[in-house]
Design a protein around this nucleic acid. Structure first.
Lengths: 327, 327
DNA sequence: CGCCGCTCAGTTACCGATATCAAAAATCAT
DNA sequence: ATGATTTTTGATATCGGTAACTGAGCGGCG
């Protein structure tokens, strides 16, 4: 920057102004600075800028897994909004571990991020304490938690799960199986299980433990879950796969075995993967606002950072049932 | 840090040393500093640290699309290695535009990243110039380019495409269709087209323009490509879908229409999505080292940053054909 | 015993920007 | 034309660390 200042015959302060707030500087100077910047090939040092102004344009994001395409849409939404507002995105994955999340949060705070977006909604006490002390605004994404750290942008996993279960009940299915990821380590799975059970009760159907299963994620896992339930003591007439790609695995397994869907068993899924609509038969599913969650998270965060808003906030982005031939 | 120093009865310099290189201070002081850090809830300011030392532990990554699950594995690989080495990841997506890539690169250089990973291999002149001047090490990922900016970690799109086409030819297919993304905006597609044509020549098969198609990505697009070729002037006996999820879309379309695969037409894909193995019939495909590309990219970058290596470098991670029932 | 070399801690000068305050120049009102 | 007001520019301190050098303390050696 010294070089630019010298070449433009002005002080460094003026260069700084010309670059960050051109209106504050005369057109003449503005032009000379611009020219000098070009000539020198000057690349501003945001590290120095942020240190001096104690403002940064970096947002930290922690997701459980980068590879999971569900989170990918949310990340895309965040990235889109941030780019439009000239902010940068730092990303870390926690591998579904609270300790790893804590480490990522610490690293982000050390970088003095302007805001945090966390997909998970349960955190270590140390992480919570650090965030509190730092005063950095936070958005949580995973589910509509009743007691957020700060802001939440999500949908209700419990309501969504309940709605789909009721949908199946209304269609006349009576022995509705339910498969989710392990609830012990996953708040979203817990909510979904609660929704399932609430819906059964509401529909006057008995809760049958043999119809509820927890599985790891993955296609093979979905296929296995299907077989286990179909060969179990209580044979379901419909199965709601409330997690990951389980429903796809199950649907493909039915295709392999030539089982008619929903003739032999109906299948419902939890997330609107493109693929579900292209399977034979296309699979009934919930459409969740993944991309929109990302967008809105970034927006509310920026609003807060730029002083356009303050205080806690909960945004419920709702969901939608897509009814297809599989149920 | 002042507070920590005061509380531990040492100078700030000593605190700095105790935190960055504990071996340099006595155990007594080390303990006092650690205690003070805890008591104060001190979170080091890496901005200041990086500014002062002109070293940062941030890597910038530009991918064409965050949402695309192909890139997601690579990002995961990068993230895994970086975390292990206590580095952070900044990510931006270019939306397949060189100008957006340039903007992302500029933003990263302004943040003084320690290294860059770019998925694309074609860049604006301005971007190249900036990178050159900055002296920041770079890894390119998209394909094994002959003239890299700096380092490349990838596989040969051309060889892979050639290998699969030859594989089909060896199986006895004679009218091999080829579908890829638009080559004009995608260096990887260009390479794949070259590989296809090279293989035809090698196998003594005529090149038939009507058998080659360019389509946008997506499942629906794959289905449409299938239909166009099957209804075209030259009906293929096999189709190689060399991009994105095209093959899945096509395979599912065959399922919907009840077309036997490979009875009516054989189908081959370009990337090892889990799903391809679960379709009916499972689809022959190329297995590309997506995750490994991420890992190795991060590793070679860190090697360079930490002075364990220097100079250009090209890592060819090869590929593998997975032969399944669809061909 | 004194010099050397080593370890450990402190002093000082930055890194490259911005905040703040003050001065100079330009604009305006009377 | 003169003082008041506004706009434009500059000088200096500072953000929170680290580099580089300095000096104190200590044991080993000839």
């Amino acid at each position: 920057m010294r070089d630019v200042a010298r070449m433009a015959q002005v002080s460094t302060m003026t260069v700084s102004r010309a670059l960050t707030d051109p209106a504050k500087v005369s057109p003449d100077v503005r032009a000379r600075v611009a020219e000098a910047v070009r000539a020198v090939g000057y690349v501003p040092n945001k590290l120095a800028g942020s240190l001096s102004s104690s403002r940064s344009r970096i947002i930290g994001l922690v997701v459980p897994s980068i590879e999971n395409s569900l989170f990918a849409s949310t990340v895309q939404g965040i990235s889109d909004v941030l780019r439009r507002h000239d902010h940068q995105l730092m990303i870390a994955d926690s591998g579904y571990s609270m300790e790893a999340e804590e480490a990522a949060i610490r690293a982000f705070l050390e970088q003095r991020v302007a805001g945090l977006i966390l997909h998970d909604t349960t955190h270590t006490p140390a992480a919570v304490e650090m965030i509190r002390r730092s005063g950095v605004p936070v958005v949580e994404n995973g589910t509509l938690v009743p007691d957020p750290l700060d802001m939440v942008v999500s949908y209700s996993n419990q309501d969504a799960s309940r709605a789909m279960t009721l949908h199946l009940a209304r269609l006349g299915y009576r022995r509705i199986g339910f498969v989710s990821l392990h609830a012990a380590t996953n708040a979203r799975s817990r909510d979904r299980q609660l929704g399932y059970r609430a819906a059964l009760e509401e529909a006057g159907l008995p809760f049958e433990p043999a119809l509820m299963l927890e599985m790891p994620g993955g296609l093979a896992s979905g296929a296995e879950a299907l077989l286990r339930l179909m060969e179990g003591p209580v044979v379901p007439d419909a199965i709601f796969f409330a997690g990951d790609v389980l429903a796809m695995g199950a649907s493909l397994e039915c295709a392999r075995r030539g089982w008619p869907v929903p003739g032999k068993v109906a299948i419902a899924a939890f997330d609107n993967f493109d693929l579900l609509g292209h399977l034979v038969p296309p699979v009934t599913t919930l459409k969740l606002p993944r991309l929109e969650i990302g967008r809105r998270s970034a927006e509310v965060l920026l609003d807060r950072i730029q002083g356009r808003a303050s205080g806690p906030l909960a945004v419920d982005l709702r969901f939608e049932i897509i009814h297809r031939a599989s149920t």
